[in-house]
Nucleic acid binder design. Structure first.
Lengths: 237, 237
DNA sequence: TTACATATTGTAAATAATACACTATAAAGC
DNA sequence: GCTTTATAGTGTATTATTTACAATATGTAA
């Protein structure tokens, strides 16, 4: 067993937000693109919206603050899902230098508390700042991207978490859809999250049992084929 | 919104273990009883097995180490379930003083990462040390106990977590039972966790579908009535 | 021998899940 | 206006799962 000399009362705690959106076809995730100036040129990569918490700040509040600061998103229901505390997760010198420059302080080790959120993809995202900008990226392609720290791992765990979570709390899925949606959109979203291909008729049958899903007298517009009926989700007591 | 002056790079991170056991009738939890000497006499309360992590220690490793140090339990499968980071959770002066005395250091604020475990209640627990001792307590009565920090809240969340978790990963429940168990024990455990009263026949029918539960040619002994058959759980591929 | 306590067993009804293929409607191209 | 194309929308039969419900069996103790 390793021997440990010091109790850790001078490490840092951060929050990271794994925010999912749905573009009608595929699941997307909100990432911060960053540019790092280096001796041998510029280095570009992506990271989760996240930062260190303040000394007198609740971690949940911190998650909301950080998400707002980096993306402009406000009042997003964030759910804590896991904390990551491998000492090696901050071992990449590039990440550490960037962070120390950003927070103007020496950072030794960071334990991060990760949150997930499901939001509508058409929400307005903050405009680019000097060296970072927030954007949506297809979750499927994330494995090919350059990601900071252990953020690729955190995203995978976040994805597992929502998959599991939506099995139990089915209504949460509507947070990813526009207020008025078609049953095809809903089905494609189900299938995107659960990586399956569900039967159209059985899906409609099951879904329409839910009294919270109400049929509207409106139809989608601007499609080059028969327009689908719109539905909305209303939470009933 | 509150204004925050300092990034937190000098706070502490702890781990706390919510360890459940089953005594055949009720769900129990492993708590540390502690005695605090004060000017006006002795103060007794209980706390979760937990402590600060070391500076170069993984949080999962820390949870195992701390549980071993405080209870003597080794190789317990611990699952992280939530982190608690309200700055007010360490606002009780008595808790803070006790902790600072224990770790020989000044502590300002602690974010704790909580873990759950399900274990057999007959596992040997470490003998009492000078001012603390680990013991089993009925979960139902925990709300009437004196508990340190926000440990009452953490236990409630831990209980919700295992309830939810056992719905998905049903085999985990066997970690709470002796290797050989009766179907009544299993049913009482189910009911204790889920706060329900299941039908004897339907329960047996459903349970015995599981090929991993195998019927033994042995019966319980020393009961003042018809002895029940024993079963064991074997993980099959 | 009886009282007591818990173990053990089956069936019918209701509900939920699955498999499966054709018609309807709107826009676009000709 | 006719055809093509693309997606919307619909029903039924089969199987699997869940639920409700009560009498007999077997051991100890009085």
């Amino acid at each position: 067993m390793t021997t440990h000399k010091n109790r850790a009362y001078n490490l840092s705690v951060s929050v990271d937000c794994v925010v999912f959106g749905f573009d009608g076809k595929e699941l997307n995730i909100l990432l911060i693109e960053r540019s790092i100036e280096e001796n041998d040129g510029q280095y570009n990569d992506k990271k989760l919206p996240g930062s260190l918490i303040y000394m007198d700040e609740d971690i949940n509040e911190a998650a909301h603050r950080v998400l707002f600061e980096l993306t402009g998103l406000k009042n997003i229901p964030l759910s804590q899902f896991h904390s990551f505390g491998d000492p090696q997760r901050t071992s990449n010198i590039r990440d550490l230098h960037w962070l120390e420059k950003t927070v103007h302080a020496k950072v030794e080790r960071i334990v991060t508390v990760a949150y997930v959120a499901l939001i509508k993809i058409n929400r307005k995202i903050k405009l680019n700042s000097n060296d970072t900008s927030a954007n949506w990226f297809n979750v499927k392609n994330v494995c090919n991207e350059n990601l900071a720290f252990d953020h690729k791992f955190i995203i995978e765990r976040g994805l597992e978490y929502i998959k599991h979570w939506l099995k139990v709390e089915k209504h949460l899925i509507f947070k990813l859809l526009p207020r008025k949606f078609t049953l095809s959109q809903l089905r494609l979203l189900y299938d995107a999250i659960n990586q399956e291909h569900s039967d159209v008729r059985n899906f409609r049958k099951k879904i329409l049992q839910d009294q919270n899903i109400v049929c509207l007298d409106e139809f989608e517009e601007g499609v080059p084929h028969r327009a689908a009926r719109l539905y909305k989700y209303v939470q009933k007591t």
